[in-house]
Computed example of a mutant assay.
Amino acid sequence: MKTKHIKTTARKLQYLLVFCLLISLEGFAQCAGGSYGTKPPPGAVRASVMASMNFDNSLNSVIVRNQSVVYGPNTMGTPYMQQSFATAKIVQVDKVYLVRYNALTDEMEVKGGESDEMLIISKKKNYEINQHSNNVTYRVLEKVDSEKENDLGYYINLEDDDNISLYKKECKKLVSKDKSTYGNSASSITMEFKDMKCEFYMEMEHDGLAIKIPRKKKEFLALFPDKAELISAFIKDNRIKLHKEKSLKKLIQYMNTI
């Protein structure tokens, strides 16, 4: 009887902890939705907590990591584009999870059932992850002309079209810092996360391949020899900059009409 009572009490405590976690995350999501982007759909946070806590391996293989393993006590900044976990729907499995993107390792992390546990989603070509809080869609593509074989990564979709789609790649790097640059008050800082310049890519006819967009006009036109004259005129008339997001959106939109 005593053992049964202990098990019942433990089960009640577990349900209470889950309930508290749900309440706190619902409040966070409402705040995040108002500050950073689209508010998560009703029930999305609750569904994501339960899906994450009962991770059923429907995302194929996963790697278990421990969040207590950090980059070092004297590191400044963060490897994440969005520090907190946020609700996101993984389209291919039709489930909502708590996720965040690590721009240093190019990995999508899923919140586990314990505070010090997280899961790394195994990359599969054309996997699509729709984040609610900042209204961003990540898609897994294979980089063309990469030194690595089967080089899969996460790319942010900017323009989606059956002909040409436009993507942005966000990256961070970890660099050593000269202690003297921070003065005596912060002389212990030795490493720092730095944002790298965004790179832009194209995908043709949703084939799952990411083609890096050259910054030089001549190299870009060489990718489209049959339409080079029309594209060249548009670039000149509209003062298109091949390294600017706004310009590239305008250019890709035009190219999808010719």
Rank of each mutant, 00 (worst) to 15 (best):
R139C: 08
K143I: 03
Y254Q: 09
S146M: 08
K172M: 08
C198I: 00
E149I: 01
A233C: 09
K244P: 00
V175G: 04
E109C: 04
V49I: 13
Y36A: 04
K179E: 10
F28T: 07
F85E: 04
L248C: 00
F234I: 05
A233T: 10
K212Q: 11
C31K: 10
M202Q: 03
S165E: 02
A44S: 10
I252R: 06
G208T: 01
Y155V: 00
L166T: 01
G183C: 04
D106R: 07
D226N: 14
D226P: 05
V18Q: 08
H132M: 07
Y97D: 03
I121G: 05
N60F: 13
A228N: 02
K143Y: 05
T190Q: 12
K177I: 13
V91I: 15
V62M: 07
E199R: 05
L242W: 05
K197P: 09
L16H: 09
H5C: 05
M108D: 00
Q30F: 15
K241F: 07
K95T: 01
G33P: 05
E192A: 13
M255Y: 08
T181S: 10
M191V: 05
I240T: 10
E107A: 08
I189M: 12
G37M: 04
S176D: 12
S24N: 10
G37P: 03
A86P: 00
V49R: 04
E114W: 13
I156A: 06
K39D: 02
V70N: 14
F220T: 03
V99T: 11
S24W: 03
F200N: 00
M50N: 03
D106M: 11
T75G: 04
P214V: 03
I156G: 01
E147D: 14
I6L: 12
N74Q: 14
I211F: 13
Y201T: 04
K168H: 03
M50H: 09
K2T: 10
N184S: 15
S146L: 06
I189V: 14
T9I: 09
G113A: 10
L230M: 15
K89S: 08
T181K: 11
V62G: 00
G34L: 08
R11T: 05
N157W: 02
V96W: 02
K148N: 11
M196P: 01
G183Q: 08
S188Y: 14
E147N: 11
T3Q: 15
K218G: 02
E142D: 09
E117Q: 12
S48H: 01
K177R: 15
K123F: 07
G34H: 06
D162F: 07
S232Q: 14
D116A: 15
D56R: 02
D116P: 06
Y101C: 01
K7V: 09
E205A: 11
S146W: 01
A10P: 00
I231T: 02
L230S: 14
